[in-house]
């Protein structure tokens, strides 16, 4: 069963880093999740100022806007897709992931099965 872990950053320092963990913590987690064979995919996202939104209107016109910018403190900072047997296993991985530490949080969404 695949789960998407959406990592939301809380408080960040001036370099955009989560203050509750170090880059080494992320490297350790990344290695663990890959060594355990549950890693499917995952990326860390560039800063939110680089975000662009696209909508296609009913008449086919493309509407491109800058942003969105952070309206709340919760900013999507990256994601992992992991393949584990059940929600408890996904929760365990999320708790080990530095993204859930400090003011950060991780939303877990099961990937739909068709």
């Amino acid at each position: 069963m695949k789960y998407l872990m959406l990592m939301h950053a809380g408080a960040v320092d001036e370099n955009g880093q989560n203050t509750a963990c170090t880059p080494e913590d992320w490297m350790t987690f990344d290695k663990e999740v890959k060594d355990a064979g549950v890693f499917v995919s995952g990326e860390s996202l560039a800063d939110l100022v680089s975000a662009t939104t696209v909508r296609v209107a009913a008449d086919g016109r493309r509407v491109v806007t800058d942003g969105p910018f952070a309206e709340t403190r919760e900013v999507l900072g990256g994601f992992y897709v992991i393949d584990v047997p059940d929600l408890d296993a996904a929760l365990d991985w999320a708790a080990r992931c530095p993204g859930s530490w400090g003011d950060g949080s991780i939303v877990i969404r099961p990937v739909a099965q068709f």
Binding site: P85, D86, L87, D88
Partner: peptide
Amino acid sequence: SQARIPFRAP
């Protein structure tokens, strides 16, 4: 069922 909350004691 969808999120697969397991039938398992901790």
